[in-house]
Simulated scan of single mutants.
Amino acid sequence: MARFWAKYMDDKLLPAAIKVAMSKGEEQKGVIEEIQKQLKTLESELKEKKFFGGESLGFVDIAANTIVWLVVAQEALGMEILTEEKFPVLHGWYQRLVDDAVFKECMPPREQHLSFVKGISMAAISLQTATMAEEVKLFGTWASPFSRRIEVALKLKGVQFEYIEENLSNKSPALLKYNPVHKKIPVLVHNGKPVAESLVILEYIDETWKHNPILPTDPYEKAMARFWAKYMDDKLWPAATKVVVSKGEEQKAVIEEIQEQLKTLESELKEKKFFGGESLGFVDIAANIIVFLLVAQEALGLMEILTEEKFPVLHEWYQRLVDDAVFKECVPPRERHLGFFKARFGSSTASK
C-alpha cells in the first residue's frame, strides 16, 4: 500500500500541481478542484496517524514532498488549495512534515523557491498568451514526411496551429498564393507571412520560438546538424522514392545503395540516444524519411532494409524515435499509410 500511495503522488498529484502553476482563469480553477479531490483522498488515507508511515516519517511521506511544492505555489500565486479549514488532518500532517529536522534540511530555500514558482508560472502564461495571439497555419498532406516534420517541431515547441490538408492533384488557391515558386507543401504561414521548404521552415520555427531548441547553439554543431539533415533530403530521400517504383535487379541495387547510406548514418549516430544528443532534435526530425522507408518496405514486401542485425545502433534509435510521444502523434495512421503505399506503388513493384 505504501508503494501504491507513493505512486499516487507521482501519477496524480504531481502532474496537477505542475499544471496549476501554468494555467489561469477557469482552467486553473478546474485544476484546483481536481487537486482538492486528490487531497481529500489522501486525508482519508492518513486518518488519525501522525505520518503516512505511522509514528515516524516514512516512504509515502517522503514521496509526498510534492505537497510542499504545492503549498509554495499556493503562496507564490495567491491561491487557496491546502487550508487548515478544508483539510485539518492533512494540514496538521504538513506542519509535522516541514518541522521534521531531516526533512527541513532538504527543503529548497523558501524565497528562492517562491521566486522559482512565480517565474515558471509567468513564463508559461506569457507563452500561452503569445502563442494564442499569433496566427500559425500549416499547409500539408497527411502522407508527406515533409509536412509531418513541421508538425513535430510545432508540437515540440507547444505552438498552436491550424492544419490545412492539401489535395496535390487540385491545389488550393491559398497554397499557390503562399508558395508561387515551387507550388509545393509544406508551407508555414505565420501572421500572414509564408515560409516554404521543410528544412527552412524547421529553422524558422526554432529561431521564432526559442524554447525547447531543436538546433544546437554551438556554430559547428549547428552546421553539422544542417549537413546531416540535408544528407537525408539529398541522398536518402531520392533513393527511398526510387526503391518503391523499381523492381528486380534495379530495386536490389537501390536497396544496397540505401543500406550504404544507413551505414553512414549509423557511424554518425554512434552511441548517442538521438542525433540531437539526449533528446529529439533537428536531424532526428528530418530523419522521419526512414519511417516512410520502413512503411514502404512492409507494404510492398521489399527486401529487409533496416534490420536489428545489420544496423543495431540505428535500429535502437528508430525504436526510440517512434516511441517518442510527440513524434508518435505526428506519424500517419499505420493502416492508412500501408494502404496508401499498396494502392499507389503496389503494381509498379510487383513482378511480372
Score class of each variant (00 low, 15 high):
F274D: 03
F274K: 11
F274N: 07
F274E: 09
F274A: 11
F275C: 12
F275E: 12
G276I: 12
G276S: 11
G276K: 12
G276M: 11
G277Q: 14
G277L: 10
G277T: 13
E278C: 06
S279P: 07
S279Q: 14
S279E: 14
S279G: 13
S279Y: 13
G281P: 08
G281D: 05
G281Q: 06
F282L: 03
F282Y: 15
V283I: 14
V283T: 14
V283R: 10
D284V: 02
D284M: 02
D284S: 07
D284P: 01
D284N: 08
D284A: 03
I285S: 09
I285G: 05
I285Q: 10
I285C: 08
I285H: 11
A286S: 14
A286H: 06
A286E: 05
A286Q: 04
A286I: 06
A287G: 14
A287T: 01
A287H: 02
A287P: 00
A287M: 01
N288H: 02
N288W: 01
I289L: 14
I289N: 07
I289R: 00
I289F: 05
I290M: 04
I290K: 01
I290R: 01
I290Y: 00
I290C: 00
I290A: 02
V291R: 01
V291E: 02
V291S: 08
V291H: 04
F292Q: 13
F292R: 14
F292Y: 15
F292C: 12
F292G: 01
L293P: 11
L293N: 10
L293R: 06
L293M: 15
L294P: 03
L294S: 11
L294D: 05
L294M: 15
L294H: 09
V295H: 01
V295W: 01
V295A: 03
A296Q: 06
A296C: 06
A296I: 02
Q297N: 13
Q297M: 10
Q297I: 11
Q297P: 08
E298Y: 08
E298C: 05
E298V: 12
A299N: 08
A299C: 08
A299K: 07
A299Q: 07
A299R: 09
A299W: 08
A299D: 10
L300G: 07
L300D: 08
L300Q: 05
G301Q: 03
G301A: 04
G301K: 12
G301V: 08
G301N: 13
M303L: 14
M303W: 11
E304A: 14
E304H: 12
E304T: 06
E304N: 09
